[in-house]
Every structure is written in structure tokens, then in C-alpha cells.
Computed example of a mutant assay.
Amino acid sequence: MTANKALVVDDSTTDLSNLKTILQDAGWLVNTASNGMQALERAKNDRPSIIFLDIVMPQLDGYGTSRALADDPATKGIPVVFVSTKNTRADQVWAKAQGGKMLIGKPFSADQIVDALKFAA
């Protein structure tokens, strides 16, 4: 049986750690990245079942990362769930327009993260 793998991308070490713990407690193998460029590389190499992606990050933001993932045949099928402080109705609509399955606002709960696993490929 193949283990479920998640990629968590956030430039906040606290949020990265919290998300990783929630997913590991749910039985998932978790890899992390602290920016969009690392995320693209890790997604291509590790082929996670789902990606939890912050929006506001240096270098390459979450929206740009999501578009790049969708443009690459190796990663285009991996579902993206945005996790961000940007959580207005307009942000929700824009996140879906950028390829996200959903946008979870910060601060997030463990239940919200676990519920988003339903989108895993």
C-alpha cells in the first residue's frame, strides 16, 4: 500500500510546523518547503497526493506556484489547498481561479486541514 504524502509550503516556521503535525497525526507522510521555488522542485520529485500552500511568500507567491504546478505535466494533477491570512470572499474566488480546491484562512483548525484531505489525488 502506498503511503499518503502531503507537501506543506509556508514561509512561517510556526504554521509549517503546525500543519506538519496535524497531517502526521492523521497518518500522512509530510514534506515541507519554505517558498514557492522549493515547492515546485519538491512537488516534481516527491509527487505528493496534496499540497497545502501559503499565498504570501517571498520569491514566488502561492498563486504563482499554483499556476506553475498546473502548467507542468508532472504536477498538474496534484490538488492544491491554499492556507493563508488572505481570506476575504474575493481571496476565496481568486484562489479557486488560480487552481486551488479551497482556501483555508489562518488561524486554521486541525479539523479544517483534515477535512481538506478529501481532495487528495
Score class of each variant (00 low, 15 high):
Ala43Pro: 04
Thr88Val: 03
Ile113Val: 15
Asn18Val: 07
Thr75Ile: 11
Gly100Cys: 10
Val93Leu: 15
Met1Gln: 04
Thr75Trp: 11
Ala90Asp: 13
Val30Thr: 05
Asp10Lys: 01
Leu19Met: 13
Asp11Ile: 00
Ser34Trp: 02
Ile50His: 08
Asn18Phe: 09
Gly100Arg: 13
Ile50Cys: 09
Gly64Gln: 13
Gly62Asn: 05
Asn35His: 12
Asp61Lys: 04
Asp46Ala: 15
Asp91Lys: 04
Ala39Trp: 02
Ile22Lys: 07
Arg89Phe: 13
Val80Lys: 05
Val83Ala: 08
Ala39Gly: 11
Glu41Cys: 09
Gln38Ser: 04
Asp61Phe: 00
Gly99Ile: 14
Phe108Val: 06
Asn45Ser: 13
Ser49Gln: 12
Met102His: 05
Thr65Tyr: 00
Gly77Met: 14
Asp111Glu: 12
Phe52Tyr: 13
Leu40His: 05
Asp72Phe: 02
Met57His: 09
Gln98Gly: 00
Met102Asp: 08
Thr14Tyr: 02
Leu69Phe: 03
Asn31Cys: 07
Met102Pro: 00
Ala6Met: 06
Met1Arg: 09
Val9Thr: 13
Asp71Gly: 07
Asn18Asp: 09
Asp25Thr: 03
Val80His: 06
Ile55Arg: 00
Leu103Gly: 01
Ser84Gln: 15
Arg67Asn: 03
Ile51Asn: 00
Asn31Lys: 12
Val93Glu: 14
Tyr63Gln: 08
Asn4Leu: 12
Leu29Pro: 01
Gly99Val: 12
Met1His: 03
Gln38Tyr: 02
Val56Lys: 08
Ser66Met: 06
Asp111Gly: 02
Ile50Thr: 07
Asp61Cys: 04
Gly27Met: 11
Val56Thr: 07
Asn18Ala: 14
Asp46Val: 10
Thr65Phe: 02
Thr13Asp: 11
